[in-house]
Design a protein around this nucleic acid. Sequence first.
DNA 1: AAGTGGTCTAGACCACCCA
DNA 2: GGGTGGTCTAGACCACTTT
Lengths: 238, 238
Amino acid sequence: MQNKYLVIYQDLLEQIEDGIHPVDSYLPSENELKTQYETSRETVRKALTLLSQNGYIQKVRGKGSVVLPRNKFDFPVSGLVSFKELQNKLGEDVQTHVLTLNTAQPSRHIKKQLLLENDDQLVTEVIRTREINGERVILDKDYFLSNKVEGLTESIAKDSIYQYLEDTLKLSISFAKKEITVEDPTEEDRLSLDLTGFHNIVVIKNYVYLDDATLFQYTESRHRPDRFRFVDFARRHH
Amino acid sequence: MQNKYLVIYQDLLEQIEDGIHPVDSYLPSENELKTQYETSRETVRKALTLLSQNGYIQKVRGKGSVVLPRNKFDFPVSGLVSFKELQNKLGEDVQTHVLTLNTAQPSRHIKKQLLLENDDQLVTEVIRTREINGERVILDKDYFLSNKVEGLTESIAKDSIYQYLEDTLKLSISFAKKEITVEDPTEEDRLSLDLTGFHNIVVIKNYVYLDDATLFQYTESRHRPDRFRFVDFARRHH
DNA sequence: AAGTGGTCTAGACCACCCA
DNA sequence: GGGTGGTCTAGACCACTTT
């Protein structure tokens, strides 16, 4: 957070969220910001580029940086938000149940998902259900490289694994690949979730990578269709 | 395509796709590339940042830029790829049927989606089905600001509207917001698609914006669940 | 003509990795 | 200690919009 461009980014973001720069208004020009923050224009531009990539502003040549409209509940969803973060935003009555937490040799299927080749790599399996307003609607199955998640306990799994990984273990999550499909419920889905009256299950497969480009987690998040919603913001890179 | 950093980007991308830089290998260092392309380091870095954002490489401090593995059919899907592009990639037997193409005053629902306030803005409606291997599995309902899509004909709609918009009308699509949910099929879905045996429909709502941040298109893409697949690549911006 | 963002340059110092 | 990427600077020229 000491980086100048991040400070400017956070600063402007806060001002946008506080309504100091309302939707459809222009931010101060790059030259003004350069003076305001006593920095170079390229550094200001780095901050503005970040705002643009995250969907907060649109830069228009010859005019300036316009603040974009944002539906409060839409963001941030694209990407890597954890369930805990979502829960805080939605503010509903949500509970997490930990069904499984163990470390063992992975099955062939999991070995394949995590691209493991040698046989001595142990994998930590965490299976949880998410209960919203009294109904079990999400089944999360996480698989981590064991040596990367030492000290993972049931109470952590009940709270937020990601917070633990980032804050305590200082793991630096870098990027993820997601695949969303719709499937028929498995026997496990029917046992773990309240699916009466539902014929499908939305499956989100998530492959998470660290800063050094190592794949360290595979997650299958299985949602009851009525409780599934995915929002994405994407810029076209010509 | 004259921009130096885009030339470098395209050049490296081609080399990656041709296997000159295989997965897990390192690209030449920024200093080497700077010399190779007779440019400054910041310009090289712009090209590498683009590659990184699009999921082709991972930059590792102190080491270099590693080429990431890519599943052939995965990319590019996140974001703004048109059906026509997807079709070319998948190479299946695909047909498009144009059910509706007309320009008129929009319904209240569409006015709301396109954030229209005055009553004189006309909207062009295009409804199409996509037939894959003989089955109608996707229903696309597009709504454009009429004055932005002059000259849109049925034969264009049968081919690729996006190609027409970008190549002929020179519209510059900038970004889009997507929302994916699962719903019960409507009467229109049942009539237009082959849904026997299916209980749900995947709905992708898409809001498309131009370079000047104006919302100019709203699309509802309704997929039969077995034919739906969404892939996303996302970097964590700390 | 003046102001805006888009690109590009030639340096600099830093943090990190590895031999 | 030498190489790597991450950040930052102080300029420059260009394309575009507005007055």
